[in-house]
Design a protein around this nucleic acid. Structure first.
Length: 351
DNA sequence: TCCATTTGACCTGC
DNA sequence: GCAGGTCAAATGGA
């Protein structure tokens, strides 16, 4: 695993770039699609941070070893008590924290970019010194019922009022998605009307959601036993992200999340990945930080969302296949969960 | 009546 | 003391 870490980091970074590219082909009005992309990126960030951790541990135990420049340390963690912008803000309760820049509607209030696939409840608003717009504070709607500690802060950019800086704190531990998949969730429920139901419903409800579903419906994976065969198409897959308590980075919360759970029917690939480190990006406007682009708009303006929907479904599928295949193949080659890896690979027999 | 939002007060870290 | 973050009572809409 130690030798494979740099390679895996490189592969994941490449996959991440493909997702970002994929994102540019999504309809900008499809918040659900963009939310899914954001979640995929989040998984990659978690994976990268875990791998970087392994890499760093390896480097500290073997100080003279050269691991190359693949990947690099993209993430900071809570153990350092610092964010990447150098500010000394302690991670709240040691929870994972990252920032996304979301393009919303000029006319919209703070509610503009809210539709990120989760149900949120606003619990406060605060004028921030030097900021033109107030900062809004949200908790997961399932905080009380399911003890989901996920929170987010939304603040409109001073420089561009259509840009929102959204800081997410903590992973979702609520099981709303599972309920959705089992049909317990009713789209008519207010908090679901712009939440998980819209994104994950197996039925194609409307055109904007259709694209999101189709993208993952015909994805393919490669397993150990058939790695020499051409990629086979599977009906669907699911990705689980599991957060386990990590004393070095986590507080006492011991969060366990099951997010990024896409449509799953019969055959599925499950990837369990622990969230190990704190993730953050500077929220300074004009930053060149390319992590967590959301909605296809890069904060610095280099990456612009196109409204071009001409990309074919096959191409979209191929992009997803290409980004997932290395990960699946890596697992398959090991024939068992990667030793010492935070990833827990679980391929059902049907794969 | 219930529930989400608003908003002033309070808490905490620097 | 200040600023950011959170709490909780008040408020309003469905």
């Amino acid at each position: 695993m130690d030798q494979k870490a740099p390679w895996l980091i490189k592969e994941i970074i490449q996959a991440k770039e493909l997702v970002i590219e994929l994102q540019t082909h999504l309809n900008p009005s499809s918040f659900s699609g963009n939310a899914l992309v954001a979640k995929i990126l989040s998984i990659f960030e978690n994976s990268l941070s875990a791998l970087n951790q392994i890499k760093m541990e390896n480097e500290t135990t073997t100080p003279n070893s050269s691991m190359g420049q693949s990947g690099g340390s993209l993430l900071s963690n809570c153990a350092s008590d610092f964010f990447q912008d150098g500010s000394r803000k302690r991670c709240r309760k040691g929870l994972v924290r990252w920032t996304q820049q979301v393009r919303g509607c000029e006319q919209a209030g703070l509610e503009g970019p809210l539709d990120d696939g989760y149900g949120w409840r606003k619990y406060g608003q605060k004028d921030i010194l030097g900021a033109k717009y107030p900062r809004a504070y949200y908790k997961c709607s399932y905080r009380t019922t399911q003890n989901c500690l996920a929170m987010k802060q939304v603040q409109r950019s001073d420089l561009n009022s259509s840009i929102f800086n959204v800081t997410y704190i903590g992973n979702h531990s609520c099981t709303e998605i599972s309920e959705l998949l089992s049909g317990k969730c009713t789209p008519n429920k207010p908090e679901h009307s712009h939440g998980h139901c819209q994104i994950y419903q197996g039925q194609r409800v409307d055109k904007s959601l259709e694209e999101t579903y189709i993208n993952f419906q015909a994805s393919s994976v490669q397993t150990a036993n058939d790695k020499d065969k051409p990629l086979e198409s599977h009906p669907s897959f699911s990705i689980y992200s599991t957060t386990t308590p990590q004393p070095a980075y986590m507080g006492n919360d011991g969060l366990e999340t099951r997010e990024n759970h896409f449509i799953s029917t019969s055959t599925k690939m499950e990837i369990h990945s622990p969230t190990l480190t704190h993730i953050s990006t500077p929220t300074t406007s004009g930053s060149n930080n390319k992590m967590h682009e959301f909605g296809g708009y890069h904060c610095g303006g280099e990456l612009l969302q196109t409204t071009d929907d001409s990309l074919g479904l096959e191409e979209l599928d191929q992009m997803i296949i290409s980004l997932l295949a290395p990960i699946a193949t890596s697992s398959a080659n090991n024939n068992h969960p990667i030793q010492g890896s935070p990833w827990d690979w679980d391929f059902p027999e049907s794969c």
